[in-house]
Amino acid sequence: MNKLEIQTDRLTLRLIVNTDVEVIHRLHCLPETDEFNTLGIPENVQETHEVITPWIEANNVPNIRNYTFAIQHKTNNEFIGLFGLRLGPKKYNRAEVWYKLHLDYWSKGYATESLKAVLNYGFDVLKLHRIEAGCAVDNIGSAKVMEKVGMKQEGRKRKILPLQSGWSDSFEYAILETDLRS
């Protein structure tokens, strides 16, 4: 089992494990966090377990290519969200990130803090060239987070996200190893 942890001033990002299923299920069941997410609300904890089992398995291979982190607050070890880092083909030396925070922790800088930490890990440790992310065009909070850390909006994909509200366009963001990180 990999013991990778990424530390920030307020947070610990650690690889998810089977015992996280209940807190992840509660996160996935919140309509507010599902609004801009394509996963959908799971019917029961078993469905959540089926979703996260491949994520846990991917975390436990010798050369991880698809990381899924639990975000925990350092003061009380409370689970506040998830963060993903998926490496692309080695030739392109790039990755994609995603995050999902419990609504009680929105607008407090935790997503920005987590994203900065993962970008630093990607560029400084994994030696990536490029890290990408996307968000629904109406997900203003997520777009602001990406812009705060120095990611640049590169384009817009039309009607690519199957959300509860219908098909949504997606803003595409990226940052390069040579770009200024805030």
Rank of each mutant, 00 (worst) to 15 (best):
I175E: 05
L119A: 05
I41V: 14
K90A: 14
H73W: 10
I131N: 02
T19W: 00
R94M: 13
K148C: 01
L11F: 07
T48V: 03
G134S: 15
F123G: 02
N139H: 15
H73F: 13
I41L: 03
G122E: 05
K3L: 11
G109T: 07
I131W: 08
R94I: 00
R26I: 04
S165L: 08
H25M: 09
S107P: 00
T8G: 07
A133C: 10
I56C: 09
V137Y: 03
Y105I: 04
S170R: 07
V145E: 03
I175F: 06
H28D: 15
A117M: 03
N18F: 07
E35K: 15
G122H: 06
S107Q: 13
K91G: 08
N93G: 09
T33N: 00
L85I: 07
L13E: 04
Q153I: 10
T12F: 11
T53R: 12
T33S: 15
L103S: 12
E147A: 12
I16H: 08
T8Q: 05
L39C: 03
E78G: 07
L119E: 03
L101P: 02
N18I: 00
L82Q: 07
H49V: 00
G122A: 10
D20A: 10
G155R: 04
K3S: 12
G166R: 13
S168V: 11
T75C: 10
V97P: 04
C135A: 11
T8P: 08
P42M: 08
G134E: 11
T19N: 14
I41R: 12
P89A: 11
D169A: 06
V118N: 00
T48W: 01
N63V: 12
E132L: 09
L27W: 06
L161D: 06
L13K: 03
M146F: 10
K144P: 00
D9S: 11
N93M: 12
R10C: 05
I16P: 03
R130L: 14
K157C: 03
I64P: 06
K90T: 13
F123D: 02
D169Y: 09
R158E: 10
D179T: 11
E132Y: 08
K127R: 12
G134M: 09
N63F: 11
S142D: 07
G81Y: 01
F36P: 02
V45C: 09
K148F: 00
Y173G: 01
P162C: 10
Y99D: 02
L85R: 00
D9C: 00
S107V: 01
V51R: 12
D20E: 10
L82D: 02
V97M: 14
G109R: 11
E5M: 10
W106Q: 05
V149Q: 02
E96P: 02
R94D: 15
